[in-house]
Structure formats: structure tokens, C-alpha cells
């Protein structure tokens, strides 16, 4: 009897890796990441420390003006002026270099909206990304320049407190 069943007993069982628990963990991670996913592609440079706020409104797609702690002014990540070095830029009400670029940007947005039907961004909103230690005089000049270039709404980008 023992010899007759020896082969059957020694038959190797297929090995299956138990993946269910791993799948559970991965799905929890996936849900967490999707929940916290933000669709905006706003680039916050290292030399800009945003102020904290209780605001909870999600940001809109629009052109972005960045002013770093070294007073370097960027429009859509492209350096436009250095307000520390170019004193004449900082003295007047309008920052001319920024004004020219903003007029171009506005025309570009309008052209895209007309020809390509691009619905991202409007030609009247400006997202302002500025270092929290800067004085209001720079913000005022940027806002006045934007206003003169035809932008009517300003969005101060802030860091949430949650």
C-alpha cells in the first residue's frame, strides 16, 4: 500500500504569492494620493516663502507673476526684471518691462482662445506669487502695471493652514 501512493504524495503543489494584502495597501495609498492630488501646475520657487492664510479657494489657471525675496520679477517663470538692481523700474508706478510682457501675454491668451478654443486661463486674471516679507509697495506696482495692461482680477497665492 505504501509503495502504491508514494508518487501521489510527493506531487509538488504550485506556488502562489499572496498578493491580496499588498493590493489593499496599494489601493489605500492610491486613494490617499488621488484625494490629495492637485491639478494645478504652479511652480513655487525656493526663494519665495508664501504667507499662510485661512483661504480655501482652489487656484485658477491664469498667468503667474512671481516676485522673489531678492526682488527678481518673473512672468510665467521667465525673468522680466530685477527690481533691486534696476532702480528706475522700481521708482515709477509702472514696471515697463512687465507691462510689455503682460500685453503680449494677454494677446497670446486671446489668440489661443480664439483659434484653438483654449479654455485654460482667462485674459483678465493674474496669479500673484510673492514672498511674504516683501513690502506692499512692490505689490502695488505690480497690480497697477497689471491693471494698465488690462488685467482686472488679482489672485494672491497663499499657503493653506490645514
Amino acid at each position: 500500500m505504501g509503495l502504491r501512493f508514494r508518487g501521489r504524495r510527493q506531487k509538488k503543489q504550485e506556488f502562489y504569492l499572496e498578493l491580496n494584502s499588498l493590493m489593499d495597501v496599494l489601493f489605500i495609498l492610491l486613494v490617499f494620493l488621488i484625494k490629495n492630488y492637485s491639478a494645478n501646475n504652479l511652480n513655487i520657487p525656493e526663494n519665495i516663502v508664501l504667507p499662510h492664510s485661512v483661504a480655501s479657494k482652489q487656484i485658477n489657471q491664469a498667468i503667474v507673476i512671481q516676485l522673489t525675496s531678492e526682488k527678481k520679477l518673473y512672468l510665467n517663470d521667465i525673468l522680466v526684471a530685477d527690481l533691486e538692481k534696476d532702480k528706475e523700474l522700481a521708482d515709477g508706478n509702472i514696471i515697463t518691462a512687465l507691462y510689455d510682457k503682460m500685453v503680449d501675454a494677454k494677446q497670446n491668451i486671446k489668440y489661443k482662445a480664439k483659434t484653438l478654443g483654449d479654455i485654460h486661463g482667462t485674459d483678465e486674471i493674474v496669479n500673484l506669487l510673492m514672498d511674504k516679507n516683501l513690502p506692499y509697495k512692490y505689490i502695488r506696482k505690480i497690480m497697477f502695471t497689471s491693471q494698465t495692461a488690462g488685467f482686472k482680477e488679482f489672485k494672491f497665492i497663499v499657503e493653506g493652514k490645514e
Binding site: 496599494l26 490629495n36 492664510s53 488679482f154
Partner: peptide, 30 residues
């Protein structure tokens, strides 16, 4: 295994593009 592959790819994509600083806006009109 195919589901696991796609989940891994999705997790890497989300981790790479994740923004851990929550940013919001305060609006102002002219």
C-alpha cells in the same frame, strides 16, 4: 499582476506630480 503593475505606475505618477504644500488663492477685484 497586471492590476498591480498599473497601480504601481499610477502611484509613481501621482507621487512624482504630488504637491504637498496646499496652495489657495485670495481674490481681489479692481
Amino acid at each position: 499582476i497586471p492590476i498591480l503593475d498599473s497601480v504601481f505606475i499610477l502611484i509613481f505618477y501621482l507621487l512624482m506630480s504630488a504637491q504637498f504644500v496646499k496652495i489657495f488663492e485670495i481674490g481681489s477685484d479692481l
